[in-house]
């Protein structure tokens, strides 16, 4: 045993070994996330001291209870879930496509989700319950992904072709979104636009209830398939040699990633670059065991969205800027840094 801890279910379906160090790091990350969580609850148009927040949370005080429970809590929870979903979605994509630059927003998956959601908002919102909004977004994401994947197919899929095609599809989806927005009424326009930029403004418990099932189903599936990604990161040839049906698992994993990204987009719009950065930061801190990385990316992705949202809420008071603006502000330079660092990977 020593340095490692083995985790294995009875059937052996799920098995991995982790360094003890990683466990400690994960616990550390979780504590840090809790701290950000509390700060996020505390900050806003009026600052509520952290000890008061804790007092309300554990039920010994009723001060600010409405603001905390009804306004801030859903927003913070939603931010965390969205970030976690995007982080894991990006991690899977990067693992499966084996390109450090892949992420759901760059290759047009979130663009497809936006089209699905905007179609829903402008044509169905009056008649169909909002419960179906995430499904519409996920459907849109799937359509976009299917397009991207089938158009990149030419005796298999190469990462570079997938990314180029993805950028093209992304442009197409943006055009469709603009078209739909221009076609719809002014009231829908403003709402859609705010939503598109990636805002957590106005999250409520009902939305939380709609988002939770997706996260609770999809994240465990990602964990379940983690050992396959471990092998797949070694390359298609090695993976085939070890008896893994490369294209089949690639498809399942991409589906999980797409569904996660779609669900996140449904509630928070285009919060960009989290899917790109969170996995990278996670890999810098943690070992390359995929199960650990899944949990790490979820925590870090969630934390990043929370931080972006804290800044968005407080930096330009009384204005509430969409968090997506800040994630892009950090994300784009980071992307460029990756481009620079991976110059060998991306050429050709």
């Amino acid at each position: 045993m020593g340095e490692y801890i083995h985790v294995r279910t009875k059937s052996g379906r799920l098995s991995f070994q982790v360094r003890k160090k990683s466990i400690f790091l994960l616990i550390g990350l979780a504590i840090l996330t809790m701290a950000v969580f509390l700060i996020s609850l505390a900050s806003g148009s009026n600052y509520i001291p952290v000890q008061d927040v804790i007092a309300v949370l554990i039920g010994i005080s009723e001060d600010h209870a409405f603001v905390l429970n009804e306004l801030r809590m859903p927003r913070v929870l939603m931010g965390f879930m969205v970030g976690a979903s995007l982080g894991v979605a990006g991690l899977i994509l990067q693992g499966v496509i084996r390109n450090p630059l892949a992420s759901p927003d760059i290759i047009g998956v979130t663009g497809g989700a936006s089209v699905g959601a905007i179609l829903f908002l402008s044509f169905l919102a009056g008649t169909v319950s909002v419960v179906w909004l995430p499904l519409a977004a996920i459907l849109g994401a799937f359509v976009a992904t299917t397009l991207i994947y089938s158009l990149s197919w030419k005796n298999g899929v190469t990462p570079i072709r997938l990314i180029l095609i993805g950028i093209g599809i992304s442009a197409l989806m943006n055009a469709v979104v603009t078209m739909l927005i221009v076609l719809s009424d002014t009231t829908v326009t403003t709402r859609s636009y705010l939503w598109l930029t990636g805002s957590l403004y106005g999250s409520n418990w009902e939305e939380i209830g709609l988002m939770i099932p997706w996260v609770l189903v999809l994240l465990p599936i990602a964990l379940l398939f983690s050992n396959i990604v471990n092998v797949k990161e070694l390359g298609d040839d090695v993976a085939s040699g070890l008896g893994i049906h490369v294209q089949k698992y690639r498809f399942i994993l991409i589906a999980v990633s797409v569904a996660l990204a779609g669900a996140a987009v449904a509630f928070a719009g285009g919060i960009g670059f989290i899917g790109l950065i969170a996995p990278h930061i996670t890999r810098l801190i943690l070992e390359r065991s995929f199960a650990i990385l899944v949990i790490g990316s979820a925590l870090i992705g969630g934390m990043m969205v929370l931080i972006a949202d804290i800044v968005a809420r407080t930096a330009f008071l009384p204005l509430d800027i969409p968090a997506g603006v800040f994630t892009a502000g950090i994300g784009a330079p980071f992307f460029i840094y990756l481009l620079y660092r991976n110059r060998q990977v991306t050429s050709g």
């Binding site: 760059i106 180029l164 892009a328 991306t346 050429s347």
Partner: peptide, 19 residues
């Protein structure tokens, strides 16, 4: 490929700020 990627990143940055 690098140019297209860099262009996509810069576009995303500017578009998001504009929004």
């Amino acid at each position: 490929v690098k140019i297209v990627l860099a262009g996509a990143a810069i576009t995303a940055l500017f578009v998001s700020f504009t929004q």
